[in-house]
């Protein structure tokens, strides 16, 4: 579905020092530029029907990748094929088969009800009336949006607007949907509604979805594949389970103590004190060593309660960034 080979994008940015008037004037006369590799010869694949998360820190290159893959900007080098189309060479044909939701940039007409923008997009994409009516009916049901599409967009809440944004991007039944932070700023209930609707659409229509988000709960509830990107290179590509398995040996042990203990009795452990009567230990060893450590803890410490947690996705992602 999506195949990216050797893709690079370099931005030329000025490194002007505007800390003082003299340095501002200097940079006005002679400005120095530096080249930033937003994407560095990356290879990437997304299978048809997947919901694929693209995760990365701010400035890691994920938005650049989405913009290249949606035909908005040209890469410096490399190739990309989506549905057998090159996004920047066959752009007009290609964009008929994609939908893009940019979480912080609206495509809806602010003054009018969302339904008017939907009709505008129907005409922009030359969608046949009967298909449009049927599809719109389906999407309104999926997003539970019957009551909101006739209100002026300016009067909608952020969650309601996001529902309309996603509906608008799906009106022409695209094969690929790029979602750039679709749940940004939404409350828990709105997040859940948008997520379950996206999941249903992926299941029922087979739409391939590429999701970029900083919200790990989006990834856990929606995605079966994940790619971690940092400094323009992929740190990990695979399924969410694979990513977690890599760190399966990591355990977080939270211990509630019956009484205060001397620091010398904790000497044999690597721990963090989280309260007067509570400590936390991070273990990242093989299963036998973990068992041994646990027996040691139970034998040597006055325990009132103990919780053993496996690794959380947030921690794994964080550890990848730290390594990078």
């Amino acid at each position: 579905m999506i195949v990216v080979r050797n893709l690079s994008k370099t931005y030329k940015v000025s490194s002007a020092d505007n800390s003082s008037l003299i340095s501002s004037l200097k940079s006005f006369i002679s400005r120095e530029y530096r080249y930033i590799k937003a994407l560095d010869q990356i290879d990437w694949e997304v299978t048809q029907g997947d919901i694929h998360a693209l995760i990365g820190r701010n400035g890691s290159g994920k938005s650049t990748l989405v913009k290249i893959l949606s035909g908005v900007i040209y890469p410096t080098e490399g190739e990309a094929l989506i549905n057998h189309c090159n996004p920047w060479k066959d752009r007009i044909k290609y964009v008929r088969n994609i939908g893009v939701v940019l979480g912080h940039k609206t495509q809806l007409t602010w003054e009018l009800p969302a339904i008017d923008t939907f009709i505008l997009y129907k005409n922009l994409y030359s969608v046949k009336t009967c298909f449009f009516n049927e599809n719109l009916k389906y999407l309104i049901k999926a997003f539970d949006a019957e009551s909101i599409i006739r209100k002026p967009v300016r009067n909608l809440s952020l969650g309601e607007r996001m529902k309309c944004e996603v509906i608008c991007s799906l009106l022409h039944a695209p094969k690929v949907l790029f979602l750039d932070e679709p749940t940004i700023g939404l409350d828990l209930i709105s997040k859940d509604q948008v997520r379950s609707a996206i999941k249903n659409i992926n299941k029922e229509l087979g739409t391939t979805i590429v999701l970029t988000s900083h919200d790990i709960s989006d990834v856990l509830s929606l995605c079966n594949k994940i790619s971690l990107i940092d400094k323009g290179r992929f740190l990990f590509k695979g399924s969410v389970n694979e990513l977690l398995e890599v760190h399966a040996s990591y355990k977080l042990i939270s211990i509630e103590l019956l009484k205060r203990v001397d620091e010398c009795s904790l000497d044999g452990f690597s721990y963090i004190k989280t309260g007067d009567y509570s400590i936390q230990m991070e273990l990242n060893e093989n299963t036998n060593s973990i068992h041994k450590k646990l027996y040691q803890v139970i034998d040597e410490l006055p325990i009132s309660d103990i919780t053993i947690e496996s690794v959380k996705l947030e921690q794994v992602v964080k550890s990848y960034y730290e390594k990078a």
């Binding site: 007009i92 940039k105 922009l124």
Partner: peptide, 13 residues
């Protein structure tokens, strides 16, 4: 302000 991206997402020149 970045809204210009939309122009490239429509199926026209």
């Amino acid at each position: 302000h970045g809204g210009f991206d939309r122009v490239f997402l429509w199926p026209h020149h």
